[in-house]
Nucleic acid binder design. Sequence first.
DNA 1: GGCCTTAGTTGATCTGGGTCAAGGTGCTCA
DNA 2: TGAGCACCTTGACCCAGATCAACTAAGGCC
Lengths: 230, 230
Amino acid sequence: MKFDNHTLILLRRSPLFRALEPSQFNALVDTARLYTLNEGELLFRQGDPLNEVFVNIKGFVKLFRLTPNGDEKVVDIIVPGSSFAEAVLFMGGRQYPVHAVALKPATVVGINAVQYEQMLRSSVDVCFGMMGLMSRRMHWLLNEVDRLTLHNATFRLVIWLLEARCSDPTCNRIALDVPKHVVASRLSIKPETFSRILKRLANHQLISVNDQHIDLLDVAMLEEMIRVEL
Amino acid sequence: MKFDNHTLILLRRSPLFRALEPSQFNALVDTARLYTLNEGELLFRQGDPLNEVFVNIKGFVKLFRLTPNGDEKVVDIIVPGSSFAEAVLFMGGRQYPVHAVALKPATVVGINAVQYEQMLRSSVDVCFGMMGLMSRRMHWLLNEVDRLTLHNATFRLVIWLLEARCSDPTCNRIALDVPKHVVASRLSIKPETFSRILKRLANHQLISVNDQHIDLLDVAMLEEMIRVEL
DNA sequence: GGCCTTAGTTGATCTGGGTCAAGGTGCTCA
DNA sequence: TGAGCACCTTGACCCAGATCAACTAAGGCC
């Protein structure tokens, strides 16, 4: 077996593959490549021609853009189980629109793009899975635009706190598995400002922060903050 | 004939319909509805359940979001020939993610969503057309995020100037068919600032502004501005 | 004609968040 | 074990763009 069981389960669960026949799934997995990335290692560069679509298995991958003068904006942080770069398949030019590097040692599966496109061509159901995925991503991007323009830094940070806590809703802890400055960039906040806002929230007894995690002490109040617009 | 020839041509050219068989196209058009909107009239509200996908025929439609306290962000200005709300089809919930109102007296065709989905189910080619469209929209949204976070107001305005001029590349005139404050909101700039930046560019002999249009006097210089980061 | 109302401009002033600078703290690697 | 480095924090200051306010100009409409 090319991949371990855990990897196969994550792949099978991905919205990319959910609608595939087992035989199709196996065919894709057969030609898939496993990438083992060191911390900071580049997976692809913005502008590179696309020939694979990726699913993250372990670690974190940051997708980001750069200005000519080196400023960086982290567009997304990819967690295990999530796919990325799928939507690029359908764009003229087929170039990755962002850079991708591993934030921690990471393992990522690369799916052959041409072959995946053939699978899509073979089944409307698979297409619908893809369209659902793309639609959710668009909605997410729209929310990003909304938050960047209509809301301030504190608001964005609080939203992130509420959305990032471990899926279990009784759990009010956010693990800081990626450096704070990366989260800051994801939220379009400078590290200094990020640090100050966290401190202010902690002073108000809303959260408590340490090196490994952030605890939400007063979820109701945090939710109120974003409801009434800070 | 339900729609005039001009309308049918615009519909047929839309990426939504390009891959449809003539019979499918006709079936959709048969059940489509024509909306004649007055200036300021609402087409749909954010949160409304989706039952139609739209193609703008005449006039301009603004898509926007509101904060609880009434601040508005114009997400997009839809020009004749463009479709909107297609991607919502594939989202759980199926609610419009933005408000839509006419900026001028406008005519818009509403396509039955359920019926359109059936057409998609019947043909992978039509699905690929849709995925191409969605992919382009996502890329556009990603660029929006990029511009909002990595670039300043002047940069965004200049980009808009260069992209908004009449498709003819020898034409260096931008028609101001929508109020300036709407364009400003589209660019996430306040009207006062928008006005000041235009004035500054005009003082530098880069553009000239009057009530109906903006002329680009020095395209090369404007392009240089966005290349070297203002 | 007179009178709202809406859009736009311009000036004066304010401020959220960025920038710059100076430590602190812990990791890695020799 | 300590030099080097990356990350984070904190303070002082700054600035692009927002806000506030006053004014002009151009419709629509009785």
